[in-house]
Design a protein around this nucleic acid. Sequence first.
RNA 1: GUUGCAUGCUGCUUCAUCGUUCUUUGCAAAAAGGAAAGGAAAGUCCGGACAAUACAGAGCACCGCAUCCCGAUAACAUCGGGACUUCCGAUAAAACGGAAUGAGAUAGUGCCACAGAAAAUAACUGCUAUUCAAAGUCCCCUUUAGGGGAUUUAGGGGUGGUGAGGGUGAAAACGUGCGGUAAGAGCGCACGGGUAAUUACAGAGAUGUAUUUACAGGGUAAACCUUGCAGAUUGUAAGCCCACGUAUAUCAACGCUUGAGUGCUGCUCGCACGAGUUGAGGGGUUGGGUGCAACAGGUAGUAAGCAAUUGCUAUCGCAGAUAAAUGAUGAGGGCUUUGAUUUAUUUCAGAGAACAGAAUCCGGCUUACAGGCAUGCAGCUUUU
Length: 167
Amino acid sequence: MEEKFLHAEEPEAERNLRFQTRSDLNSTSAAKSFAGFDSAQLQGKFTFAAEEKLKSKKLIEQLFKEGKSVSTNGFTLVYLVQPLRTFYPAQAGFSVPKRNFKHAVDRNRVKRLMREAYRLNKLPFYEKLAARQKQLAVMFVYKGKALPTYEATTKAIVHCMNRISIA
RNA sequence: GUUGCAUGCUGCUUCAUCGUUCUUUGCAAAAAGGAAAGGAAAGUCCGGACAAUACAGAGCACCGCAUCCCGAUAACAUCGGGACUUCCGAUAAAACGGAAUGAGAUAGUGCCACAGAAAAUAACUGCUAUUCAAAGUCCCCUUUAGGGGAUUUAGGGGUGGUGAGGGUGAAAACGUGCGGUAAGAGCGCACGGGUAAUUACAGAGAUGUAUUUACAGGGUAAACCUUGCAGAUUGUAAGCCCACGUAUAUCAACGCUUGAGUGCUGCUCGCACGAGUUGAGGGGUUGGGUGCAACAGGUAGUAAGCAAUUGCUAUCGCAGAUAAAUGAUGAGGGCUUUGAUUUAUUUCAGAGAACAGAAUCCGGCUUACAGGCAUGCAGCUUUU
């Protein structure tokens, strides 16, 4: 991936400098730049690496404060256009409120289903974002009260991702 | 054989595809290999380890505990062995078995559903004394309408006395008998029972037996509370380190060789260093590492002990996330169950799989739990 980035065109790299944060510059980790993203690399790979997860507490707070949302069938997708410290076009998190599921076992089950659905269906979403040179912070929240099935979850997640409109 | 209850153990499995976290090999990358939730990980109710802060002593508050003896343990409110009290079961009575039986209801306050007159001390009702009115009966006087006296009352009103008769309740003011009284009452007496204390004896002790004295006291302390005993507070988001960042933003105090402060120390003295130090406030980071996975450690054997448990030997390395990994999907095999089928749990088809997810770590306790296995008890049934 390192080499691929070095081959990237000069003007495009320059243009994307604004996506890099100060900490990126300090660590001089060029691999973390969004500029190096190439969807062809991920073709046929359904990974979900640590860098694709939404982990920063600050960012999550900002997301819920300023983000827009789309929902289907109890699944809500909160998203925010925001420069990230990764070369992936998006970072995703999954959440299930304690209110509807009392036991941790059930919450974990729903989160795992959502993560699986996202992992297997994220590629078209990534390509769409990469084409427009945008990075997105994304959080899926399940607000239903019954345990969803695998099929229903997949359907809803894909539907949510398709409905997002990026200015 | 079957059903139920109790206790203990167990807590489906294999493969494929695509992933996640940690880790090993590797300079690195790519890649390959290895490991990855529980008996309760839960509740957070106790006890510790670890850490920071505080600490002369005493008291208050708060929180917890509650029969006795011995033992186990790092420790405990836990565990083991034995004993006592109370209650329940069992029995003719015991023996025996079981128990969320365990300071105080005689310090005080509160509460006691439904029913019942009434749930704690009074009222109602009843009983009873007296009185007023009324009515009846009898007698007397004047007279034909009244007056006076006596006496009576399952009825009415007033003033007292009385306490458990009211049969409802989980529980009704010690029980039975005699006396006593206007009527009654532990008001008195006899016998019996209860509570508290004294003394004696038995016992290691809880306690038991006897004696004497006093008392009348419904239950509830898992309602507050009282007594005794024990306890510093906080909680791994503790704490430590690094990075980032501001050092002359600003304000205050003390000090600049007449010595602020720092180090040594628990403190004082003393010695050394010595020009800044401390506080407020503002700004920045809200990242990474460590804590943090080797132990009161697991497994097996063996020895000691009634047991809890402990010693010794061998062997194993067994989660470490942080918006939080340990997964998703598919197929098969066992298991349970339903329907059909068969000589046959033989075959076919469908359905189901509990409670529940590490968050610093251990020892307990409590609560939840489908199915399976083992043991014990009880009921029913079959055979002998």
